[in-house]
Design a protein around this nucleic acid. Structure first.
Lengths: 193, 193
DNA sequence: GCAATCCGTTAACATAGGTTAATGTGTTTT
DNA sequence: AAAACACATTAACCTATGTTAACGGATTGC
């Protein structure tokens, strides 16, 4: 049941059978159908989610109704609206499923309790957060200094699995451009080479 | 000497006098003159730096020689090239001082040792990383969905101190636009209202 | 105190990406 | 099987931001 989570945690820290058995008691399994929400903007984000199978996206919707994808999460990724999760403020992002998806959820209180009964888990999340920070840094760097075409090429290189799995319009949204523009960029790229 | 660091840490966790005295032994004080480098791209980033006084910036330089500011750090902020610091790979960013600056430095081994002798410090950094992640999320969100004008207004609101302290051209670089464009945007804003 | 440099402004022109709208195709719903 | 929908493509036109270049005031260095 918790195999995916277990092997992900074991890649960063070492836990015994019984320690991991204890860890699992803090998580709630949950399945989402394609298009189903895990979180809607305005609600408080109560859970941090580990994707065991499937694909999620988090996105904002502005006053014109335009969606902008902030993050994708496939197998072995964690997803939440971190700010809302940490502060209990209403979420600014929506999270929903791009495919039928299986998750393990943990709420903030359980997580804090887990930290205190098993400090190695805080260590695990600290390492995870470091990785997230470097990835975010990279993405910001890209937005500051790269053109849409360069960002698309970087995306292809960094997340080749995702390109196969999510509609092109969703990739465009993640890159901060319109689907028509991505289509044009792809055409130009194919003409170049 | 370590007052600024102490009060910053004490805002997140509680340390006794003697605990904090131990913590300080892990840090190296350092002063930088304006324009002096803390890190040059290509070198390995050995230190995580706490700004006690002054102002740093981290930035990339592309093949055309254009600089793009990834982050500012004033009093009470931490600065590093996180990826290089964690992996010992050559840094992709430069870090230098925009003002005469006073720092406390810690290297990776010292930090890891500090985590093990004082787990509360790992807790402190975990909380710090969470805050960093939410700020990065916000900035990415801004790049995906906001115009240069909106990003500038957000910057004014979020970092009013910085607008006073750093040259406008540096703010433009942080926003991902050219100084001339920021100048034009400011003009349009002043005409509107 | 003078020269050099940095910094912000402005303006004319260029371009990447947005907008609108039409078309085709495959997929879901009924 | 038909209708409705989701998704990608293309094209003509529009706009925000980039580019190049010139100017002037302020600051820094000698």
């Amino acid at each position: 049941m918790f195999d995916t989570l277990r092997s992900h945690i074991n890649r960063k820290i070492k836990l015994s059978e019984s320690e991991f058995a204890l860890v699992t008691t803090f998580f709630i399994p949950k399945k989402l159908r394609k298009k189903q929400y895990l979180l809607q903007a305005g609600d408080v984000c109560k859970y941090l989610a580990f994707v065991s199978k499937g694909c999620l996206r988090s996105y904002s919707v502005n006053d014109k109704g335009e969606e902008h994808i902030v993050q994708f999460a496939i197998e072995d990724w964690w997803m939440t609206d971190l700010k809302s999760f940490l502060t209990n403020e209403p979420a600014t992002y929506n999270i929903d499923a791009l495919e039928d998806t299986e998750l393990f959820l943990i709420d903030k209180e359980s997580q804090d309790k887990l930290y205190s009964v098993m400090p190695k888990i805080e260590h695990y999340f600290r390492i995870l957060l470091e990785g997230n920070n470097t990835a975010a840094q990279k993405r910001i760097s890209d937005f500051i200094s790269a053109s849409a075409e360069e960002r698309y090429l970087n995306f292809l290189k960094t997340y080749p699995e995702l390109v196969q799995r999510v509609p092109q319009s969703q990739v465009a949204s993640y890159l901060g451009i319109k689907p028509q523009s991505l289509s044009r960029i792809r055409k130009e790229l194919s003409e170049k080479k």
